[in-house]
Structures are given as structure tokens and as C-alpha cells.
Design a protein around this nucleic acid. Structure first.
Lengths: 340, 340
DNA sequence: TTGTATGCGTTATCAA
DNA sequence: TTGATAACGCATACAA
């Protein structure tokens, strides 16, 4: 009680309980390897002193941190929030802690953060998308840190991934847009750099053109950051072309909301004068007016599965599988047949 | 090169450069205390081996982690995302790394995460709001971990805080609502437990009633989680009372958006039949229809200032100040005079 | 300016 | 079932 105000260590607990530090450690880590009676004494001491194991020391001695690192492009919109939350919840159930940081869609920043997380002893990493310097994968290999890719699934790639097929999902959506009669389609895409999802979504649209015997070269594509106002700017730009596109397909819901907003400001009615589509199906998609036609991605499910896979990679020696998660097209008010 | 595939240590670098580990350590931590020539040799070795300092070892030896922990109630909406992002950016500039976790508005979870972060050697903590068990503050005291409270400012409290006066902000908004002629006002609030912001916002409304010589006891208050659909449910409940309130003031924008949505489903027009207000002024507030009257909180600024304060607390011995950040009332379409 | 040696708090190996 | 004791990788006081 009247002791000095410093964090208690294993040693303090050991003394208080009249046992060795080894025994205290065992009580905490493999309780069945210690007799009931001493366990009680030790636990009482732990409680009394308010002891919390020092993580750094533990990680260093055990060479395991029970920590997973995740680097997501942004925390600022809901796209990743849900999936990461589910990922974290599932990890927790397996006894792991999640460390999250965001790269602001900057490859360099991601690289730095990967080093940080590895230095912090992360047992494994969750990264978004496949595209990054080969050197990074080499570094990870050297440090023996398993990596799982999420939010993107590609067949035939070296790293295990849990995600969806961005290209195919967008392909399906574009088919529907074309089926409704649209021929002049423009795209507001996220930046391609270090973001294979963005690129593959655009490819999906072009695939649909091909399949319908249309010429994909004429499709106007604007790349921009995933921000509402950026989407708005891009929309204005596209709608100042002549002839105007009859449908604007956006790389995600955030961009699409920006498009909707700008349409309103420009006095262009959606979907009468132009159709708009999104991707992700975040909450926003149902709040805007008109509601957004988009691709539904089961973020929560993806997060949970990713956690399960990553833990399996860490705890068994089995080769990691890749999982392709199905997406679904959601038709709402922002898509309709073109005017004429 | 042809070496075994294991993470290099200080020792490896030292050997490679032909110096002692101490010199390598100095090169990395206080570069000016080592001569240019050897520095070059060492840095080359570092680069060649792809050396990354082991964080756990460093933290243990130096008894500093240059890590700040932040526990926010949720990552799932934009309320905290922006502020935390700014907090992180500012910390980085001071050489600190931020570890974030979310408590899902559960006091118990927050408690556990505080222990986790302390065990991980966080040099300081950012917590949201003042209200929590005294025991937690004692624990933090024992472990000598400085704490800064954000998102809430209260005069005359023991812990330093950077935030805004929730009670006064809501008081101002309520005054405006009353000024426009509303007398039957209902409130959709967040849960009070462990959340002084929610409680103080409700108090602010009652203060405004008092000031106008109105009776605050009749104000209907529904407490619910900060989710859109929960807000919608609460709105339905409040609007089934007779007589109906002429204005529904919500604890934050998320709840308000839920209210707006339910109004639409019920065929109640806003603001003609009922006014709705929010709090926070997140992006959503300008996207919904009608746009939301709300209280603008400068999240980014708050995040930056909080980071500055916390770093100051760590690096100087000066007593930490508390900072009250001004808020602003934003009048938009969701508020109008009552019908009759 | 650089090297030597010690300690940080824990886990794990080996004996007892 | 328990106790010594050697790592773990780094920073730092002290010595050279």
C-alpha cells in the first residue's frame, strides 16, 4: 500500500506471493502447470499490486506478440471501418490484439508503417490490395512475417488473399447499366497508383463493353482521390463534355455521392438526365437522394474471414488459402434507362 | 546476402560495420555524437542488412516507447475519425506513433484497452470524455501514464482536457430552436452511461428551457446507441406521442439522420411538420435532405491541439492546461418555425 | 569519439 | 510442481 508509486513487476508479485518469478509467469501463461494452492496466492498478489505484464518484455522473451497489424488506406470513411472492426472482433476472440494505422492511400506511407508494425513485433499483417513494391514483400519475407491481403481477390497470385473480384463485380454492374440502354458511359475512378482495386474496377466496365460488342476506348475516365468533393469536381468535368454521358459509374460510393451532389448543384436530375452508380454499399448509399445503385460488399464477413485465415496462417503450418467473397449488385433509384 | 533468413539485429550491423553495438545505437539515436566517417559506414551496413530496430527491446531499454495510445468509442462513423487522424498527423511530426483502439462505447472494454495500451508501454493516453471509474485514474497514476481527455471540456476538473463545452453548445442551439417558437421539444440522446457528453447535451437543452422560463420537466428524452436505425426507432417512438413534439433535437448527426429517414418513411415532412437538429456537423449533415441544422465542432483543430498538449505534457514538466474549443451553430434546412 | 558492461521485465530450459 | 538462470535486443553510464 504505502509503497512507492511505480509499476509492479513480476518480481514484486513473486516476492509478495513468496514464490519465484517463474511460477508467477506460469500462473499467468499456463495455469494448469501450477498447483491450485499457489495459484490462488499468486493471483491474489497480482490483484493486490495491480500488476500488468510488461508487453515489450514479454514479446521479447517469447518471440511472439499476439499482435496483428493492419494498414488501411483511410480511417476517414466507412469503407474500411466496418471490415476492420469485424476483423478486430474476430482476432480478439483468438487472443490477438489489432494495431491499425492508415496510409492515406500513399504507398510510401504504407511502406513506413509496415516497417513500424514489424518493428513492433506484429506476428502477422493485413494489407489492402496486392499492388506494392516487390522489395516490401522481400522485407516481410526476411522478417518472417506472414501477410494476408484483403479487399481484393485475384486468382493465381503468390500471396493469400481474402477479398472479392473487383473486376468481375464491376463487370456485372456495367452489364446491367448497358442492358438498360446506356452507351455513353463515363467513369470516376480512384487513383490507380498502388491501388489495383481501382484499376480493376475500370477494367470491369471495359470488359462489359467488349462483351456487348461496344468500343471501350471512348470511355472517359477521371482519376481522383476518394473524397466527396473530388467526386463532385470530376462529375462536373465529365458533364461538361459534349455529348454528355448518360451514365457515370463511380469507383466507390463516396465518389458517387459527390457526383449526386454536384448534379443537384448543376440542376441535373438523377436518374432522369444522367444515371449514377457507386461501389461498396456503405450506409451513405441509402441515405442520399436518389438512393444509390451500387455493388454490395459484405465487409463484416470479409473482416471475420480474413481474421480467421490469418490466425490459421500463424498457428498452423498449412498453406494459406485464398478466399473469394461474392458481391451483389444492388439496384436503387440512381440508375434508370437513358432519356431518349 | 546468402545469409540465413532472419531479422538482423544491432549486433549484426555492428559486426558488418566493424564497430560496437553502442556506436550503432548512437548513430541511430543521437547521430551528432558520432563522427561522420563511421556514421557513413554504419548507415551503409544498416541499409545493406535491411535492419529495423526491435521496438520492444528499445522500449524496454530506454523506458520510453514514443507511442501514444488513443481509445475512441467507435471507428464506425466519422465523428472521431477526423479528429483522430489530425491527432495522429500532429503526433507523427513530433516523432510519436499513435495506437488506436475502439471501445464500442463500453466502459468495460475501455478499461481493458487502457490496460493493454499501458502494458504496451504507451507514454501517454488520449481518452474521450471524463466519466470513468476512479480506479482507472488510480491505475494510470500508479503507472505514471499522463492522460489527456478530449471531446469534452469541463471547467474545474482534475485532469487536463482539450475539447468543447457540450452543455453550452447544446444550450446555444436549443436557445435558437426556442427562439424560433418551439415549445414541445423532444430529445434523442446517446446513452448516458460512461458518456458525460450525452448527458451534458441534454442538460444544455434544459438550461435553455429554464432561461426562457419554460418547464424542462416535460421534455421527452429517449436514450439510444449512436446508430442511424436506432435514431430512426427513437424518432418513431417520439412521434407517436400526442401531442407530437414540434422539434426533435438529437445527440449527434448520426441519430438525426436516422430521425430524418424515419420521418420520410412515416410521411412526415421536415421541417414543415417537425424540425430536427443534430450535433457534430459531419459530412453527412450536408448530404441529407433537408440539410441538417447542427453544432459544428472543429474536430481537426481539436485533434491537433490535443496532440500538442499531450506531447507537451510528456516532454516538459509544466502542468498541463485545459483548452476549451469554441463550437458554432450551423442553421440549415431541417429547422424552421413550428407550423401553427 | 568509441567500446565495455549492465540492466530492462519477461519466457523458457533445465535441474531439483 | 517449483526454482535458478540464461537468453531476448537494445540503450546508456562509465571507462578508455
Amino acid at each position: 500500500m504505502g509503497k512507492t508509486t511505480k509499476a509492479p513487476t513480476l518480481d514484486d508479485v513473486a516476492k509478495q506471493a513468496g514464490v519465484s518469478t517463474a511460477t508467477v509467469s506460469r500462473c499467468l501463461n499456463s495455469p494448469d502447470r501450477v498447483i491450485e494452492k499457489t495459484k490462488i496466492r499468486v493471483l491474489a498478489a497480482v490483484d493486490q499490486l495491480g500488476y500488468t505484464p510488461n508487453f515489450a518484455a514479454r514479446a521479447m522473451a517469447a518471440k511472439r506478440s499476439y499482435t496483428i497489424g493492419a494498414i488501411i488506406p483511410t480511417m476517414e470513411n466507412a469503407i474500411f471501418a466496418r471490415g476492420v472492426q469485424a476483423f478486430q472482433d474476430e482476432l480478439r476472440e483468438h487472443g490477438y490484439t489489432l494495431l491499425v494505422s492508415s496510409s492515406a492511400y500513399k504507398p510510401d506511407m504504407e511502406k513506413e508503417q509496415i516497417r513500424t508494425l514489424v518493428a513492433r513485433g506484429a506476428d502477422g499483417l493485413l494489407l489492402i490490395g496486392h499492388e506494392r513494391e516487390e522489395q516490401i514483400y522481400a522485407y516481410l519475407e526476411q522478417h518472417q512475417v506472414p501477410v494476408l491481403i484483403a479487399w481484393s481477390y485475384l486468382p493465381n497470385i503468390p500471396h493469400p488473399s481474402v477479398g472479392f473480384n473487383n473486376r468481375r463485380a464491376m463487370f456485372e454492374l456495367a452489364k446491367e447499366v448497358i442492358r438498360q440502354g446506356h452507351r455513353r458511359i463515363a467513369i470516376i475512378s480512384g487513383l490507380f497508383e498502388g491501388n489495383d482495386r481501382a484499376l480493376n474496377r475500370v477494367r470491369g466496365v471495359k470488359d462489359a463493353f467488349q462483351e456487348n460488342g461496344l468500343q471501350p476506348d471512348g470511355i472517359a475516365v477521371v482519376q481522383t482521390d476518394y473524397e466527396i468533393e473530388k467526386g463532385a469536381n470530376a462529375f462536373r468535368k465529365l458533364m461538361s463534355q459534349s455529348p454528355r454521358p448518360t451514365a457515370v459509374m463511380c469507383g466507390n460510393d463516396v465518389l458517387a455521392v459527390g457526383a449526386l451532389r454536384e448534379a443537384e448543384r448543376m440542376g441535373i436530375t438523377v436518374p432522369n438526365q444522367v444515371s449514377v452508380t457507386g461501389f461498396d454499399d456503405i450506409e451513405l448509399a441509402e441515405i442520399v437522394n436518389p438512393k444509390l445503385t451500387t455493388v454490395h460488399v459484405p465487409h463484416r464477413e470479409m473482416g471475420r474471414m480474413a481474421a480467421g485465415e490469418l490466425v490459421a496462417m500463424l498457428e498452423t503450418d498449412s498453406e494459406a488459402r485464398s478466399i473469394c467473397i461474392p458481391t451483389k449488385i444492388i439496384i436503387r433509384g440512381s440508375l434508370a434507362r437513358p432519356a431518349n
